[in-house]
């Protein structure tokens, strides 16, 4: 039995534009205090769901490649993991056509709209790792999150932001815990339905 070959894209959602705050007068002050690194890697809106991301990828593929391209990728396209806190996602696509999905991500310039009446938020989707198994993608995500925290610490250089770092550390640990749970779940319950599967970190490939 030959299983279907996939590629897993580890995607960072980056925000190049400065934080929009409510009052114009405080914008400059807040910009000064928050370093660029944290501004670029800031959390995504909490109500961003994996299906929003899938929909926007499909729209972009339809725009770039038309019906033909969409037909090639739509069977295998799936967002396996989306963390709004770290703005990280893992996108699954078929191995033969992963470059189509990748270029669709590269040509994206704004976050998928969650509701009709909110303004589009500009963002850059950066693919940081392409791997054949989701396990390696997870490991890379953890490694990068760690490195980012270390860099943020070094960038600050003093203990004035201990609270932020403590929070991030906690977040990192949570992430690790999640992966551990995901592994157990993946081993035990391989008969998860697709909808449940979508939200979990699944270390085993659901090859069928």
């Amino acid at each position: 039995m030959v299983r279907i070959k996939y590629r897993y894209l580890l995607v960072h959602i980056l925000y190049p534009d400065p934080v929009e705050s409510e009052s114009r007068s405080t914008t400059r002050a807040s910009d000064k205090s928050i370093p660029d690194l944290i501004q670029f890697h800031r959390p995504s809106p909490g109500d961003l769901q994996p299906q929003h991301l899938v929909r926007s990828i499909r729209d972009q593929v339809l725009l770039l490649y038309g019906d033909y391209g969409l037909g090639l990728i739509s069977a295998s396209l799936n967002v396996k993991y989306l963390s709004t806190a770290t703005s990280t996602a893992i996108v699954r696509c078929s191995r033969a056509h992963f470059r189509i999905v990748w270029s669709a991500l590269a040509f994206m310039t704004q976050l998928p709209r969650i509701s009709k009446h909110d303004s589009p938020q500009p963002c850059v989707m950066q693919v940081v790792r392409v791997s054949g198994t989701i396990k390696k993608a997870e490991e890379e995500a953890i490694r990068r999150a760690r490195a980012a925290i270390l860099r943020a610490k070094r960038g600050n250089g003093d203990g004035s932001t201990d609270n932020v770092i403590g929070m991030l550390d906690q977040l990192d640990d949570d992430n690790l815990g999640l992966v551990g749970r995901g592994k157990k779940k993946g081993n035990a319950g391989s008969d998860l339905s697709d909808e449940e599967d979508e939200l979990e970190m699944d270390s085993e490939e659901d090859g069928d």
């Binding site: 190049p16 470059r99 590269a106 500009p122 850059v124 950066q126 693919v127």
Partner: peptide, 18 residues
């Protein structure tokens, strides 16, 4: 001209491949 138009090296390479 804006930071929004920049892409990472890997994304650029993928575009070049296409």
């Amino acid at each position: 001209r804006r930071a929004l138009a920049c892409r990472g090296p890997a994304d650029v390479i993928n575009m070049a491949v296409l």
